[in-house]
Amino acid sequence: MIVAFFLLLYSFVVAVLIPPLLIRLTHSGIAPGLGVAAWMAALGSVVLSWMAAATLVLVELVRDHGRPGQSALESCLASLHAVVSGRVGLVLQVTLLLLALMAVVAFATLIWKWSDRLRRMRSLTYGHARMTRMVGHHVAGVDAVVLEASQPAAYCVVGRPSAIVVTTAALGALDRRELDAVLAHERAHLAGRHLQVLAMIRGLASSLPWISLFTTAEAEVARLLEMCADDSAARTHGSHAVLSGLIAMSATSPLPSGAMGASGVAVLDRARRLAAPASPRDRMRARTSLAAASVLISIGPMATGLLAMSGVMLCGSMVM
């Protein structure tokens, strides 16, 4: 049980301390792919810690069922309190047990709410993709569904199949190279499954809006994914085409819910980044820092669990 407690403590520390650090490391967008990986490592470590703690609590309760004389919490703290005051150890055990049970219930509720939100978002995006194919049309040489609209817009939405949508106003505002760059940007979103990644994070953020790790990750990962798509389009069509296309589309109306578009997020930051790329030295420094942060965050739950188990085993041998 003490392992579950320390896993919950670790997740709390990560949720409080990691967001400011990751913002400093990723906000410039020098290495957006590694930036997304770092944020996903932080989110995964917290959720994994919750899952492991809930599983350990359930295993402990099943193992100790039917053995009322057996302590449900064999730990250093319980042993020391039992020696010093006798009854304080029992109070501590009951308190930690109640906290652990609350964590199990909270985690189960989170999974249910998150799954429900994902289902609703999927239904919404699938319906939008289906509707655009019904009301839109195709234009020769344009690998997208074209909608009649007075505002320039280009975006992609997940469906069966997924759809890239561009308006007639966008066709009029973009030249051929800019249009190809914008469409390549949207194809990068679909190929990289960026919409699915963002949907999972948005589901967590909407389910737990009071935890800043999730809400901050939602905003930061969205802008980093746009930068990833910018880089993918720039490798094929050049930074200038992506930048000019981004500027031409910068005055668009809001995108549909669940969609991602070339001009939807952090337009000014992305324009500056495309106009003035980072130096090789800055890119190497950012990649090294982000890779190290991702590894340390990823192994955190395992290291925490092993350390807690080692402490319990050491303390148990000392008491014996």
Rank of each mutant, 00 (worst) to 15 (best):
P280D: 12
A129W: 07
L306I: 14
M102P: 04
V94I: 14
G261S: 12
S11P: 01
D282P: 01
I247L: 14
A234I: 06
A262L: 11
E220D: 11
L34A: 11
A169D: 06
W39V: 10
P277N: 07
G238M: 12
Q93C: 00
T125K: 02
S279Y: 12
A222P: 00
S75N: 00
R272C: 00
C76D: 09
S28L: 07
P254A: 10
R130Q: 11
C76T: 12
I111D: 00
L17M: 05
G29N: 14
V14K: 02
V57P: 03
S115E: 06
M227I: 07
S150Y: 06
V221C: 00
S71W: 01
T95A: 14
R235A: 14
V36T: 14
A53N: 09
A229P: 11
P280W: 11
C315K: 01
S263T: 15
A217Y: 03
Q196Y: 07
A219W: 00
S317D: 02
D64V: 15
R87H: 07
A217E: 02
G258L: 09
L92M: 05
V157F: 06
M313L: 15
A276W: 01
V47S: 08
L7P: 00
R133M: 05
L147M: 14
A276P: 00
P256H: 13
C156D: 03
V14R: 01
G141A: 05
V88S: 11
L179I: 12
V158K: 10
S263W: 08
A37K: 13
V295C: 10
H189G: 05
R187C: 04
G172W: 00
P256C: 14
V59A: 15
A153F: 04
A78I: 05
A72Q: 12
L307N: 03
I164S: 03
L124W: 03
A52H: 05
M200E: 10
V265E: 09
L61F: 13
A144N: 09
V242C: 09
A276Y: 02
E74W: 03
V105Y: 13
A276E: 07
L90S: 04
G238H: 11
A41V: 08
P161G: 08
R273C: 01
R281D: 12
V312T: 15
A170K: 03
T26H: 01
I18H: 02
S239Y: 08
T215I: 05
A53H: 12
S279P: 10
G66N: 06
Y126D: 11
A181K: 08
L92C: 00
L90G: 02
L204H: 02
L147V: 15
L268C: 02
R119D: 08
R87G: 05
L77M: 12
A4V: 02
F6E: 14
L179M: 15
G261Q: 14
A41Y: 06
P256A: 14
A233H: 11
R281M: 10
V158S: 12
T95P: 00
M227G: 04
S71N: 04
E218M: 09
A54Q: 07
M227K: 09
A278I: 05
P209H: 10
A259P: 05
A184Q: 11
